[in-house]
């Protein structure tokens, strides 16, 4: 794959290959220094310190070097010229571009004008394929992506990580259980798309209805601004909060994921339970991004 823009561009085979490569990197330390001499621009037009550090770390571990443009410099570029011009110019300086941009579709546009590979590191409310790939990688570490029950919990209407993950999981034999407050369910068009792709999707309002059957519980952020007032937000947030108490009776093999940072969706007391995998998940960002950089730079 030359560019990595959207998880929708991936066939199942592409995902499997990439995850297998990440695993080789992770467990056998292969590809060390394989991008020696390669230079990559990390163009960040909006702040995302973790994603940037994770890509920088991935690149350094492969022996490559990065030029960072942070959000402050990035925003002054935005004022001056089009993104199309920026990526055309930057293409002349580096071997690949990792782009973070506030506008949806920015990475697709960049790939049309760049003369080097582009990796999408998040474009507005749009795609963020490295997040989805590391989510899949973390699930795959614990169980095969086959005949499993995955619960998505939280704001499923606006949460892009949940959308991309749901789409990616539809390549596999996965039953999807969506747990969201009314008004924040999966968008209709996505639901239609998933069903068309043969995925079974079952909706719940109450998490305890399905928790005992789940193999994976993926928790996403719930944002205050989606609710009319603080009281109704706190009320909903409280009833969707994952606590050790609510987890009694779950499968021993359950894993709990969260894209982080969290804001109260998961009680810190859950961190010590065997189900918690979100810190592992964040750490997995490095081998997965190493595999992505490896993939686009044709090694």
């Amino acid at each position: 794959m030359y560019h990595i823009i959207s998880i929708k561009d991936f066939e199942r085979e592409d995902i499997d290959n990439l995850l297998a490569r990440a695993e080789e990197i992770d467990t056998q330390g292969v590809y060390e220094r394989s991008l020696e001499g390669k230079l990559v621009a990390l163009l960040f037009f909006e702040p995302s310190t973790r994603t940037r550090m994770s890509f920088a770390s991935a690149l350094a571990r492969l022996g490559g070097a990065s030029i960072c443009v942070d959000s402050v410099e990035g925003s002054s570029i935005i004022k001056g010229e089009t993104l199309a011009d920026t990526v055309r110019v930057v293409s002349g300086y580096v071997d690949a571009i990792v782009l973070r941009h506030p506008r949806e579709g920015a990475a697709r546009l960049a790939s049309e004008f760049a003369t080097v590979p582009v990796i999408n590191a998040g474009d507005g409310a749009g795609q963020h394929p490295s997040q989805t790939l590391l989510d899949l990688y973390t699930i795959r570490q614990s169980m095969p992506l086959d005949a499993i029950d995955v619960g998505l919990l939280g704001d499923l209407r606006y949460g892009r990580t949940a959308h991309s993950l749901a789409y990616a999981l539809s390549h596999y034999d996965v039953t999807l259980h969506t747990i969201a407050p009314s008004g924040l369910e999966l968008p209709e068009h996505l639901l239609g798309e998933l069903k068309e792709r043969g995925m079974e999707v079952i909706a719940y309002e109450d998490v305890s209805d399905i928790l005992p059957s789940l193999d994976v519980l993926y928790v996403t952020r719930m944002q205050r601004e989606r609710f009319p007032d603080s009281a109704s937000f706190l009320n909903v947030a409280q009833s969707y909060r994952i606590t050790p108490e609510i987890l009694t009776g779950v499968k021993n093999s359950l894993i709990i994921l969260h894209p982080l940072p969290r804001a109260g969706e998961i009680d810190p007391r859950v961190d010590d339970l065997p189900y918690a995998r979100y810190f592992e998940q964040a750490k997995n960002g490095v081998p997965v991004r190493m595999a992505m950089l490896q993939e686009v730079m044709g090694q």
Binding site: T82, L83, A84, P102, G105, E112, G124, H189
Partner: peptide
Amino acid sequence: NPGCISNTSEPIESSFEVTAAG
């Protein structure tokens, strides 16, 4: 979508794929 890159001064045309859903 007001946040879409095709609604800016970038030198591109809007591009839509015609699908059964719309």
